[in-house]
Design a protein around this nucleic acid. Structure first.
Lengths: 353, 353
DNA sequence: GATGCGAACGTAATCGTTTTCATGGGGATT
DNA sequence: AATCCCCATGAAAACGATTACGTTCGCATC
């Protein structure tokens, strides 16, 4: 045991201990050949004995790689956040990448500051933020830093984006409601500027146009909050004729809407059917359980990381730039469809305008 | 504009541009004096012009500080996870620290590997993991790396630990149930090895001993899953005499238990009262809404980071080593207490054996 | 006018790795 | 037996910052 007292062992210490040069240690430990099996063994032994761990900073400096990717996330909803991180983290670990997280950003400049702070610490970025548009990226994202945008409206082919297929999900749910015998379906919309909300709105309209061309298009305002869902629910009850079904652009609004219905003594699904979007955990526990559209958030995170990893490996700019992730509709009791054999239907992921 | 074409500007480029030495650039930009106001201005100008950002790795190498803290987290429940990260992240950002996350660890060696991988990339660690005990830390955590343990049973004064006051929370809830007129209270326990579960169990027993010394102690097995809560609920119904109230060691079990009661046509709270622990979002939405104990998870994360930051600043070993975070009981309908003016009571955070 | 002193600034060592290039020795080939 | 080549190895140059230590001034003091 040679001087175990000092701080951390460096590559030099290992070299001395194994009686070779630092170059050999480096080569050997990094798996690049050029070392006798015997000396490799001696080196590994010395390394363990000294508890040698390569100094990350030194390696980063010379290698110009941090093996770290950054995730820039807004201040977002519980379940969504944790699932997303889980997906990213799992995929990252599988690839030996570290994950630097910066979440809870409110304003655009808040996000910009965070992005700048990550400069040089990460090899690539995963970005999910409402404030991020092409101009923002132009100004704050160095051209040399690969990035994947999640759920973004950015269309520039210069950036890789990955969206969940809100359109197809909404379309499928509305079609299901119509197919279950509800002749008219109203939509509780999400916030006007929100990309997801817009896509879901489009899906609703498309499904109505296709499968119930003569039914009225009814859209109530909402902002994804439970409160706004409650208000919209009361508006729905005041409508004449009253729609047979309500599709809320997210589950929280559906839950609020359900409260309004209960309060008014309107039964779900007998008097009016209800469906949401997201499949948050609460959806299963309200009474009646809420039919909804499930998005595999973890999958989104995983895919995003894989995509980014691909960008990191190739120096070539990759071809495909916009991708879409499918979702499933989950039929529970609130939509009044008698339970079919399979209560979950897959929706093909398709691209859409 | 001098050679804006190249890759990233280094301190040398700035020095050349401002016609001073690199030492002056470093001093000036880092706020250490020794520079004329005039040259400082020239340097800053040159730096912006070149979009100079100091190379993190180079700085880390010489400084031996990464300004990054690592968070080692198990594979844990949605809301808890996101709130915890939020609290940590907010506090970290306020201090200019970065956050390196490694989550979803299952086994002890999984965690060990993650811990090792973070070596040298972080200045300190936040650790929350069931597999972490004193021996584990001894083996895998370098003595030189400051760390704060969250919700840990480790008692060694060598490590800083921060726990939520499960004991006081459980105690207060059970006392409340007894005070509300329910003469007997049964507990659905958590997994045997779990630290939180143990503390909640102790709180239950202490409250019973103190406020209902003659009532029987009834403990049903559970493992924090909804399923186990359902099973325990059925066991409760078979009990003779049937307890007047059930306290589940977490909300998910309470939800499962509630399902069992509903299925059997037993009304909550009229026939039997029910309470949980954690205040997960679902608790508000089940019917009837669930009384529970709220833990401010974000606060836990924030405190942990502050604590760690303190460790980082002082080289002195800090005195206090174990701390505890209070929680509140949240009274909703499931426990059958008529709603009092304030439905949330604060519980003083006290230390306990 | 010589001396001392402090502020402003530059030179160079340093951090721990990777990587290029040179070197030497030991087969294999001729 | 001479030549060639390959392969294991080592020496040293990067990488980009911080900082200890000199150096050069200008100015006040004696």
């Amino acid at each position: 045991m040679t001087a175990t007292t000092g701080k951390a062992a460096t590559i030099k210490d290992v070299a001395r201990e194994a009686r070779v040069s630092v170059a050999s240690v480096s080569r050997s430990l990094n798996g690049n050949g050029g070392v006798t099996a015997e000396t490799a063994l001696r080196i590994r032994a010395a390394a363990d004995r000294l508890h040698y761990v390569p100094h990350a900073a030194a390696r980063m400096l010379i290698t110009r790689r941090s093996n770290t990717i950054g995730a820039l996330l807004p201040d977002l909803y519980g379940e969504f956040f944790s699932e997303l991180i889980r997906g990213i983290d799992l995929a990252a670990r599988a690839r030996g990448l570290h994950l630097l997280v910066s979440s809870s950003h409110d304003g655009a400049e808040d996000a910009a500051a965070a992005l700048r702070a990550m400069q040089g610490r990460v090899d690539g970025m995963l970005i999910l933020s409402a404030h991020v548009d092409a101009a923002f990226l132009q100004a704050n994202l160095p051209r040399s830093l690969p990035a994947v945008l999640l759920n973004s409206a950015v269309t520039s082919p210069a950036y890789a984006v990955l969206n969940v297929d809100n359109y197809a999900g909404a379309y499928a749910m509305v079609r299901h409601l119509l197919g279950a015998g509800h002749a008219s379906v109203a939509l509780i919309a999400g916030p006007a500027g929100n990309f997801d909300a817009q896509q879901r709105d489009k899906g609703y309209r498309a499904a109505m146009a296709k499968h119930a061309p003569h039914a009225p298009i009814t859209v109530l305002a909402g902002d994804f909050s439970e409160e706004s869902g409650y208000r919209a629910g009361r508006e729905v009850l005041a409508l004449r004729p009253r729609p047979r079904a309500v599709f809320a652009a997210n589950d929280m609004m559906a839950v609020g809407c359900l409260a309004a219905f209960k309060e008014a003594g309107v039964r779900v699904p007998q008097d009016i059917a209800l469906a949401g979007f997201d499949d948050i955990p609460i959806a299963r526990y309200v009474t009646p359980p809420l039919s909804t559209v499930r998005v595999s958030i973890a999958e989104l995170g995983r895919s995003a990381l894989e995509r980014l990893a691909a960008l990191l490996e190739k120096t070539e700019p990759l071809p495909a730039h916009a991708d879409t992730l499918g979702c499933k509709i989950v039929i529970r009791e609130s939509c009044g469809a008698s339970l079919i054999a399979t209560s979950i239907q897959n929706i093909l992921s398709t691209s859409h305008p």
